[in-house]
Structure formats: C-alpha cells, structure tokens
C-alpha cells in the first residue's frame, strides 16, 4: 500500500486530500470545460475565496461562507448570463471583479489573521486535516452519486443545452445543478488548493481530457485521473525539491494539458471520428 512507504502521517492526509480534490475538480471541470464556462468557474472560485476571507474577518469557519459566496455567485451569474441583457462575458466579469474587490477588502480588514488569509490564497495541502478530508469525501460522494444518477440528462445539457431543453429535459435545473455543484467543489477544495489556484485544477485536467476523447464518460474518468495525477506528482515534487505544493500542482496540471494537446488525435490528419467513442448498451 502507498501509505506504508509514506514517511509521515501528514503526507498520508495530503495524498488522500489530493485524491479527493483531483476527483471532484476533474468531474466538475469536465462539465465546465465542455459547456465553455471556464471563466464562470474562475468567477465562482473568487467568490468562494472572498467568502472564506470574510469568514476569517468575522471569526467564522471559512468553509461555511466560502460555500455561501460561491453558491450566491452561481445564482447571480447564471440568470445574468442567460437573460442576454448583458453578454455572459460582461456579466461574469462584473461579478468576478466585485469578488476580487471584496476579497481584498476582507483581507485588509483582518490584518491580525494575515497568516490564515494567505493560506486561503495558496492553499495548504500538506496541512490538510480530518475536517478538510471529511468535507472533500462528502463532496466526492455526492458528485459521484449525482453524476451516476443523472448522467443522461447531464450529458444532453452539457453537450447541447438548447436541444435538450427542446426535447423536454429540464435543462435549467441541470444547468443550475452543475453551477451549484461547481460552487460546492470549489468551496470544499479551497483550504487544500487555495482560492487563486483551484480553478486551474478545474480547467487544466478537463481541457487535457477533452483533447483525447469524444466520449463524455471517458472524459470524466480521464479528467479525474489527470486531476489526481496533478495533485500527487505536484505533492511529490513539493516534498522532494521543497517547492510550494499548490504551485507545483498547478504547474503539473498545465504540463499534463500540454502533453495531451501534443498527443491529441483530434489534431491529426486522419478522420478523428475513428477514435474510440462510447457506444451505449
């Protein structure tokens, strides 16, 4: 077992946190990337970050307000982007800048808690505790349960929302489910990966997976695997070369994307549809 040759207990906790974070960010990222909502996930990540800093200022547990802020951002940005009075880019951009402003406001209001606040910037996978892992575990279980139960609706909406809506799929419920789910994933990953880095773990592994398959099922599995690989390789690099863990994880995830883009059969000259695609039973 991997645990047996891990020299310290804290590393075992970090490995477990990396596994769970990689899985949940990989799953949520697969939907976000396919729906072209990468910027929206950046916005929700900053909202979670602002919420966590607000909690530090008020003396609450960061997770509660991180979750509230990220869900609130998803609830505001979704309709703004949908109603079309503003372009989605503009409406998400406005909320994004507001969240950055709030984050720095709360950061400035709590000078005595600067160390805790900085941890929320970069994350601290090496200090992941029982609460962090429990929260990540519950989030992972819910993600797997929901994706398993509603895969056909999710696939229809993620790949062609208007078509799904026209066929009678409650597309708005599925879309908001994905947005709120992403908010929960980001909030629960925040203490481990940090507010400034969490969206790279959402986007890079999923974007890498999209380079390699035309099957959403396979894309989810690949994306989660790349997420876990990013966390574990980044963690190992951090341990052996004394590098910042969060930064190492992000850089590894970017390297995985570069490798996937280089090897992508979608960029080759022969008909790309000949790649293996899922044929449902």
């Amino acid at each position: 077992m991997i645990w047996e040759w891990l020299p310290h207990d804290y590393l075992m906790a970090a490995v477990l946190a990396g596994l769970l974070t990689g899985v949940i960010c990989g799953i949520a990222g697969a939907f976000i990337v396919t729906m072209h909502l990468a910027f929206l996930s950046v916005c929700i990540a900053h909202a979670a970050f602002a919420g966590a800093l607000c909690a530090v200022w008020l003396g609450f547990p960061p997770l509660a307000l991180a979750l509230a802020f990220s869900l609130g951002a998803a609830a505001i940005v979704g309709p703004l982007a949908e109603q079309g009075d503003l372009s989605p880019d503009a409406s998400i951009g406005i909320i994004f800048t507001l969240m950055i402003g709030l984050a720095f406001l709360f950061f400035g209001l709590a000078p005595e808690a600067r160390a805790t606040s900085l941890t929320l910037f970069w994350g601290s996978i090496l200090t992941a505790g029982g609460t962090d892992i429990t929260v990540l575990g519950v989030t992972a279980a819910m993600c797997l349960l929901l994706v398993g139960g509603f895969f056909k609706e999710i696939q229809a909406v993620v790949c062609h929302r208007e078509t799904a809506m026209a066929a009678g799929v409650p597309a708005a419920v599925v879309t908001y489910g994905i947005l709120f789910g992403t908010g929960a994933v980001i909030a629960s990953s925040l203490p481990v990966i940090g507010g400034l880095l969490v969206y790279s773990l959402l986007i890079n592994p999923a974007a890498a997976a999209l380079q390699l398959t035309y099957s959403l099922r396979r894309m989810i599995v690949l994306s989660a695997s790349f997420g876990v690989a990013s966390c574990w390789v980044g963690l190992a690099a951090s341990y052996f070369w004394d590098l910042p863990a969060g930064a190492s994880i992000v850089i590894v995830s970017a390297l995985i994307f570069a490798a996937a883009a280089g090897l992508s059969p979608k960029r080759r000259r022969w008909p790309s549809w000949k790649m293996r695609a899922t044929k449902p039973a």
């Binding site: 790949c159 062609h160 078509t163 398959t213 035309y214 959403l216 396979r218 979608k266 899922t278 044929k279």
Partner: peptide
C-alpha cells in the same frame, strides 16, 4: 470537439 456521438445525441 463535443464529447457526444450521433447515437447519444
């Protein structure tokens, strides 16, 4: 690049 086949769609 959409990850969905004609049959699934």
């Amino acid at each position: 690049r959409l990850p969905i086949t004609v049959r699934e769609s």
